[in-house]
Design a protein around this nucleic acid. Structure first.
Length: 841
RNA sequence: GCUCUCGUGGCGGAACUGGCAUACGCGCGUGGCUUAGGACCACGUCCCGCAAGGGUUAGAGGUUCAAAUCCUCUCGAGAGCACCA
């Protein structure tokens, strides 16, 4: 890209406008010819002004609207509007196109809402805990705190250069101890409510690096750093009982306006299914059944959604991890073989277990059988890794006749496939004594990380008292400074090496005790950040306590729920679910006034590289927003990212595309400079301009609401093209209306051009009311009547609106171009009022 | 494999409720601006045809006076879930 682009264009304009006709005036140019369109200059100028006048700061106690200031679209005085975009992880690479797309769209929304008279909150902050910063620290020794500071400074500068109307006075940072003291406090509420517990769970383990890996660090079953195959290893982890909220999380979806695909993903993730638990008695195979009187040594409970198929169940399959195996090992004839299979399974990662395609593996538990409670037949019992221990009861009744997977397994191991009649749900329960139950795919949330760069889990382990919460007055439990950021050889958090920090006193019995060294996952700080923006400075300054929190309830009540939340599609399962879970929990505790935190949720589509591939650092096809701001200005870049495609759709970036929106702004600049001069002032606009202006106001107003920014920009281009192409007259008042609707999209150029107008007052453009349109000016009195003969278009004529079918036929038949297609009276006529007439011959 | 979404010029895309397909922008072409040009201005730009006209929304069929839009199948792309009983 060249630097000369804008200079060249503007230079030419200046010569034409000023010099050509009156050469003597050239020396006077600096005096009354306004400057060229120089985005660099005007954008900084207005950004400074907005900041100085604090125009984007939301009021917790908003003043009443001035009388007569509102348009007819304006809401009641002091109505709030909370527009939220996902706060970024401030990576060293800076802002990317995904941020640009989301933030620009919501800046348009926020600016429009302010102009409509709402008290708007549009905040920004940093989700700054995370692996890249920690890995950077491991590599360079630079403390994550330092790197984060640099990165947020850079990121903030980038965001400000785009003219976003964020309320920077409310900026938050999840890694600030004054922030995470509240994250820790919320965790303690969960702990005290019995929703946090320790359990042994599988984690991804790299045997070479000897560390536990986050799922994000496992790339197709291999360690991201060294490429070694990842193993599963059991480790004690803190868990949050999100499953206790499965039904509430599902129910809550009915009350909110999420995009249908987002709702579907949440539902899918929770994965509720109704079915039955049925017990199968376990018997020794060698003993004769003798009329069903053989003695059951155990009962195996299975979960099924199809109890009606039970007569066709010809065998049972247990998950290899099923706890009953250990209990009945003496009865299993081939226990050694079974043990080997279990050991094999343990080594496999989840990915291995599913990536082996459809090939089913398993081992029969010889020496035992179960009795099918419906048929009373003895059927064999197998273990197989296609049955998951974590879902249902970890055991299934296999019905190869009705289930594809059971059929595959039966075919592999030559097990009987029988065609038995179905029975009703109720009948099946009656015969077998089964119980209706509900299961979920949703698993409890693994909340521990053996990492440095996260919130310390504020718990203390005492030999006498067990796990004890750190007292509120001692929060935050701050991250201590460490020498090395690496996890230890046995996979513990680097905090575990800080013996001084680890060894402490039990808050209850004052005896010697140890701190928890695990930290919280990334998702913790972002699970409540929409509330953090609402807290007063006191909440951050003062010690953490219920009383301090309760002082904030008024603000939470005023602002919540978030009216509209936007972010990436990649966060609509975990982050969205986790934060809804915390909110629901806090609601139950009386600590939050609303059940659902987000009233509406949308997601932007991905911006791809120009060849349609994903932008990625390793491929080197990343484009940097900074370059475009520098070259074409923030306004042109903002317009292009909105114009590129429908908001929720993936779109390929095109470097040339910005030229189009830059040219559009150039045209606007020329008109604006012209309209602003006293010679150009007219008392009325051309009728054509007025009509089109009102149509455009309507279109842009509606398109912003439906996130159709691309067509909104297109409508404004059409308006400008009409003025330029036909040299139409426009008054200062009408021009200002246009500048107003453009201002959320291109806030800098519009402020600048507005300042040239005779109609300007002391207010900034962005503080003025959103223009309303006059419906009477939009209604057309004529329309183009489409004339079809036998369904084919043969011509159009201008006609008065409201004409009858008879009039339309008469008009049509007068046309020379129609006459030649029609001979005699039409057999049939289809008439669509104010649109078309179709003559069937 | 299953579920969802989608397929329109050289490219990004527009088309309300089934009613003139290709708006707007990029790119490209021709000409102008007595130098140059990823600048600006004018005109042109789906295909066949001199024209009248005909064809065209991934492909094939269907419903309808009328289909990019509704239905069926095939092909292709993207996203999500991936053995959830």
């Amino acid at each position: 890209m060249r630097n000369a682009f804008s200079e060249l264009r503007s230079e030419k304009y200046e010569l034409r406008a000023a010099g050509i006709y009156f050469p003597y005036f050239i020396i006077l140019i600096p005096y009354f010819i306004p400057m060229n369109y120089d985005p660099q200059k005007i954008e900084k100028k207005w950004q400074k002004k907005w900041t100085a006048e604090k125009v984007f700061e939301a009021k917790d106690d908003p003043p009443r609207r001035l009388e007569g200031r509102g348009s007819d679209l304006a809401p009641q005085a002091s109505e709030k509007y909370y527009a939220l975009v996902e706060f970024p992880y401030p990576s060293g690479a800076g802002m990317h196109m995904g941020h640009l797309r989301s933030y620009t769209a919501f800046d348009v929304l926020a600016r429009k809402r302010r102009m409509e008279g709402y008290n708007v909150l549009f905040p920004m902050g940093w989700d700054a805990f995370g692996l890249p910063t920690e890995n950077y620290a491991i590599k360079t020794g630079i403390p994550p705190q330092t790197a984060t500071k640099q990165n947020t400074t850079n990121f903030r500068k980038q965001l400000q250069s785009l003219g976003y109307s964020f309320d920077w006075s409310r900026e938050v940072n999840t890694t600030d101890p004054q922030y995470y003291k509240w994250t820790q406090w919320i965790f303690l509420q969960l702990f005290k409510a019995g929703l946090a517990y320790k359990a042994r769970v599988n984690i991804n383990w790299c045997p070479k690096d000897k560390i536990g890996l986050a799922n994000e660090e496992v790339i197709s079953g291999k360690c991201e750093r060294c490429g070694t195959a990842v193993e599963q290893r059991e480790k004690e982890q803190w868990m949050l009982k999100i499953t206790a909220y499965a039904d509430k999380l599902l129910e809550g979806l009915k009350e909110v306006e999420y995009l249908p695909e987002i709702k579907a993903q949440q539902e899918n993730w929770i994965g509720r299914s109704e079915g039955a638990e049925i017990e199968f008695p376990l018997v020794i195979a060698s003993l004769p059944a003798s009329g069903g009187r053989s003695v059951a040594i155990q009962l195996i409970k299975v979960f099924t959604t199809r109890p009606d198929t039970i007569s066709g169940a010809t065998y049972l399959v247990l998950a290899p991890e099923h706890s009953i195996i250990e209990k009945i090992k003496l009865q299993i004839a081939n226990y050694k073989e079974v043990q080997e299979y279990i050991a094999e399974t343990k080594l496999k990662s989840d990915l291995d277990r599913s990536s082996e395609g459809k090939a089913k593996t398993g081992v029969e538990l010889k020496g035992i059988k179960v009795i099918n409670p419906a048929t009373k037949e003895k059927i064999p019992v197998w273990i197989g890794d296609y049955v998951l221990v974590a879902y249902g009861t970890g055991a299934i009744m296999a019905v190869p006749q009705h289930d594809e997977r059971d059929r595959a397994f039966a075919e592999t191991f030559k097990l009987p496939i029988v065609d038995k009649p179905l029975i009703s749900f109720d009948e099946a329960l009656a015969i077998t004594g089964g119980k209706k139950t509900v299961t979920y795919k949703l698993r409890d949330w693994v909340f521990s990380r053996q990492r440095y760069w996260g919130e310390p889990i504020p718990l203390i382990n005492c030999a006498k008292c067990g796990w004890v919460a750190v007292p509120e007055k001692d929060l935050p439990v701050k991250l201590p400074k460490v020498e090395k950021y690496q996890p230890t050889d046995n996979g513990e958090s680097p905090l575990s090496t800080m013996t001084k920090w680890v060894n402490t006193k039990c808050p209850q019995c004052k005896g010697p005790a140890k701190r928890e060294t695990d930290t919280m996952p990334n998702w913790a700080g972002s699970s409540w950040y929409y509330m953090a923006y609402l807290l007063s400075p006191n909440a951050f300054k003062n010690p953490v306590s219920l009383a301090t929190w309760n002082l904030e309830l008024d603000k939470l009540s005023y602002w919540l729920p978030v009216d509209w939340y936007n972010g990436g599609m990649e966060h609509v399962t975990l982050h969205l679910l986790y934060s809804r879970f915390w909110n629901l929990f806090l609601y139950d505790q009386g600590l939050v006034p609303v059940k659902e935190p987000y009233q509406k949720r949308t997601a932007q589509g991905t911006i791809l590289a120009s060849d349609g591939a994903k932008m990625s650092k390793s491929v080197g096809n990343i484009v940097n927003p900074d370059d475009f701001v520098k070259e074409f200005g923030a306004d042109a870049l903002r317009l292009y990212i909105l114009f590129i495609a429908p908001f929720n759709q993936a779109a390929a970036w095109d470097n040339h595309g910005v030229l189009g929106t830059a040219r559009f702004l150039e045209k606007i600049w020329k008109i604006g400079i012209h309209v602003g001069t006293s010679e150009a002032r007219v008392s009325t606009s051309d009728t054509k301009v007025v009509r089109l202006l009102h149509k455009t106001i309507k279109k842009v107003s509606e398109d912003i609401e439906s996130m159709s920014f691309n067509t909104a920009v297109s409508a404004m281009m059409i308006f400008i093209n009409q003025i330029t192409n036909y040299k139409l007259q426009i008054t200062n008042e009408d021009w200002q209306k246009f500048l107003k609707i453009l201002s959320p999209f291109a806030p800098h150029i519009t402020e600048e051009l507005n300042s040239l107008l005779a109609t300007r007052d002391s207010l900034l453009l962005c503080q003025q009311p959103w223009p309303s349109f006059d419906p009477s000016l939009i209604i057309e009195h004529t329309f183009d009547l489409i004339i079809q003969v036998n369904g084919r278009v043969r011509g159009t004529i201008q006609a008065q609106k409201g004409i009858t079918q008879a009039e339309a036929i008469e008009l049509a038949l007068l046309q020379e171009s129609i006459k030649k297609w029609v001979s005699g009276a039409p057999k049939k006529v289809i008439f669509v009022p104010d649109r078309l007439i179709n003559l069937i011959i």
